[in-house]
Design a protein around this nucleic acid. Structure first.
Lengths: 231, 231
DNA sequence: ACCTGAACACCGTTCAAGT
DNA sequence: ACCTGAACACCGTTCAAGT
């Protein structure tokens, strides 16, 4: 495992007269480091999606030879794991007083989790396929904690957590992969009406055209929490 | 979208009329056909996972040259779409009388859906990423239908359906990707206890070691349905 | 310790061509 | 209509080697 590099060294302290390097590559000549690799991988993933991440391109963007990455990282899988975990960091609830509103806290935590993943649409699909990293474990720990404080018995805790996990993951994966450009919307609409005699109900309620994702997420979450709440 | 009339398919002649011989052979030297390609792709995917499907190997297994597939199919993506849809067929509830028990029917439909996907562990992760095919649309239609019969108002229907979708997808994707060999179990246990001071709660309830997947799925689903049920 | 180019073993797909 | 091999444009990774 690579020792930590003090990343902020030489290049940072220079800060030469601000106008010249307004050319697009502000970070081209630093040494490689795990941090830079991960950050750049996230950039690339955000821009090109999971299939768009290429080791050569990643190295290129970092200004290094293609194979230099392999000294810092075992393989591409490791890059995925690191990028994924880096995106799942939780900063905690807005610092108010230690609140009594456990349900509100749960909602906040889950909405923040979903929002973090939606900011990096490749992340949600990746999460269930990889080993759980420290950041997601922290989120689960905090969630368990809050539920316990809310009165959920230990015997019901795992079911509650997995239910919430399932709901959040399903919602986020689905939403992240549903790219509704105007064209897609139009196409879906057209297709649906064309098939209205095969699928009358979902056509009537416009299931596939409903695009209030945030509202639907929140409402469904409320229902689930209703069902899970100790009475 | 439901009826996939891709370019590849339209390239095929219809070849419907009574031909000289109804092909009867097992599957060693038959001509290629979309059906055989899809069936074999499913076999391969079951055995090797999503990343294990190679066009060359697929052709090989079908006893044809590597490039012959491309006359029947546009590209690899199309193979995925077809394999996925083929796995999602629904045969309907066990033929009893038209029941009054709408909730029981919903549970049956969702458990069958989950079971179908778990029989082909690659399928769940694929489903949210691809265009919805006819078989999954049929399942959604039937679900909508049943919920409506159960008294869910049109205004609440989409939220209910997406909530159930989210839950089922999240649960199935997670379960399908959680391969708990004895080794993995042991490793997880070890890791968790080693980290027990960082994650005390999930360690205490053995969140990651809980392996009653079916039971947890059912219990969580019940909670969700409790929350969604009209009162 | 850190980085590198050349090279290998793939894999999806295009193409021109066969029947 | 249906199938094929050769070839192209990749891409992850190994290796032997540089500093």
């Amino acid at each position: 495992m690579a020792a930590k590099r003090s990343g902020a060294q030489s290049k940072r302290s220079q800060r030469i007269g601000g106008s010249l390097q307004s050319a697009q590559e502000p970070h081209s000549e630093q040494p490689l480091s795990l941090e830079r690799i991960v950050a750049t991988a996230v950039e690339l993933l955000d821009g090109q999606g999971v299939d768009g991440l290429k080791m050569r391109q990643l190295a290129d963007r970092l200004g290094s030879g293609a194979m230099s990455l392999y000294w810092h990282v075992d393989n591409k899988e490791a890059v995925f794991d690191l990028a994924l975990d880096s995106v799942l960091e939780y900063r905690g609830p807005p610092q108010t007083v230690e609140s009594q509103d456990w349900r509100g806290e749960v909602v906040h935590m889950l909405e923040d989790w979903r929002a973090s993943m939606l900011r990096h649409p490749w992340s949600a699909s990746l999460l269930p396929r990889r080993r759980l990293g420290p950041n997601i474990l922290s989120r689960l720990e905090l969630l368990s904690n809050t539920l316990t404080r809310g009165g959920v018995a230990d015997a019901d805790l795992n079911v509650a957590i997995w239910s919430l996990w399932n709901y959040v993951m399903g919602a986020t994966i689905t939403r992240a992969n549903f790219n509704l450009s105007d064209d897609d919307m139009a196409a879906a609409q057209q297709r649906l009406t064309r098939l209205s005699e095969r699928y009358p109900t979902i056509e009537r309620t416009r299931l596939l055209l409903d695009n209030d994702w945030d509202g639907a997420f929140r409402k469904g979450l409320d229902s689930l929490l209703d069902g899970l709440s100790p009475r």
